[in-house]
């Protein structure tokens, strides 16, 4: 018995050792980012390498904010993330409910038209969307960042799966009470899929916060960039001033990291669960 227990302990020890090694690689870039952001420019490019800054300074943060349009990047990213989260959740929940719970002529075709775009790789949309924004006079505006993403076929598809799983009885009682479909949706169905709604909110938030290619294509003036596209321009502005680049990168990731630490279980479950249903 004693031998078996210690063998078990030994194998647990090895498992922890491997998992810790993996964890170090996962967090190392973040640690390096933070350490570098507090160094002086010379410390960051010193040989042999210097791990800790001698006198941690916020100089790099001040420079990143003062010499680029960082506050604009924040505001634009926040605005885009807000629009790309709130509206798709509302619109997708409504549509998903109608597709799952109401039989109506043409529902199959409409649903097919909506989810068919999920098979198309994103870059396929960009040139036509760019031409469309250009015709609407929206190139280089914050509106162009979010307007096409007020709807989400993916969220519609995902939420429909959940509405399909709810039993009929609740709905029938409400119909007898004279509720119209919207009232049934709002007061009975929506609360039942709240965990799926949270998952959709998290996914939309992450996607829109971190997206790069579309903001890069549609906007070029500094006051209209998002954080991700703005970071790309910091590289050309500051070159090898590593502390400034790292200060910018850290400021860009901090909001999502804070949200993640507060709602970690929701994040992990939300993202994993959307993948398993999607």
């Amino acid at each position: 018995m004693g031998g078996a227990a210690s063998a078990k302990q030994r194998s647990n020890f090895i498992i922890h050792l491997i998992l810790i090694a993996g964890a170090v690689i996962m967090v190392l870039p973040f640690i390096w980012m933070i350490l570098t952001s507090f160094k002086t420019t010379t410390e960051a490019t010193q040989i042999p390498i210097k791990i800790f800054p001698a006198e941690p300074s916020f100089r790099a943060y001040a420079d990143a904010i003062k010499q680029s349009s960082f506050l604009h990047y924040y505001a634009n990213t926040l605005m885009a993330a807000f629009m790309k989260t709130v509206f798709p959740v509302i619109f997708s929940a409504m549509a998903a409910f109608a597709f799952a719970r109401i039989r109506f002529p043409g529902s199959g075709l409409c649903f097919f038209l909506i989810i068919s775009v999920m098979m198309v790789p994103n870059p396929v949309f960009y040139t036509p969307q760019y031409l469309m924004m250009s015709n609407l006079g929206l190139v280089n505006t914050v509106t162009a960042l979010w307007i096409a993403s007020l709807v989400s076929p993916f969220a519609t598809f995902l939420l429909r799966q959940f509405f399909l799983g709810i039993s009929k009885e609740l709905e029938e009682a409400a119909v007898l009470d004279g509720c119209n479909p919207f009232q049934i949706f709002r007061h009975i169905m929506l609360p039942l899929v709240s965990s799926a709604l949270v998952a959709v909110v998290i996914i939309q938030l992450l996607w829109s916060w971190n997206e790069l290619q579309w903001p890069l294509i549609i906007n070029s003036s500094p006051e209209k960039l998002t954080l991700s596209a703005g970071l790309a321009t910091l590289v050309s502005m500051f070159g090898t001033d590593y502390p400034v680049l790292m200060a910018g990168a850290f400021m860009a990731v901090v909001p999502m990291l804070v949200l993640f630490f507060i709602f970690q279980r929701r994040f992990i479950e939300g993202v994993a669960f959307s993948a398993s249903k999607g």
Binding site: G22, A23, M26, V27, P29, F30, W32, M33, T36, L206, W209, N210, L212, L227, S228, A229, L231, A232, L234, V235, L245, M246, G248, A249, F250, A252, V253, M256, L257, L259, F260, Q264, F267, I268, V271
Partner: peptide, 15 residues
């Protein structure tokens, strides 16, 4: 292990 998933690709790329 999930941390990189919530990190902006642009920021991760820079580091």
């Amino acid at each position: 292990y999930f941390l990189p998933q919530v990190t902006m690709a642009a920021a991760a790329a820079m580091v």
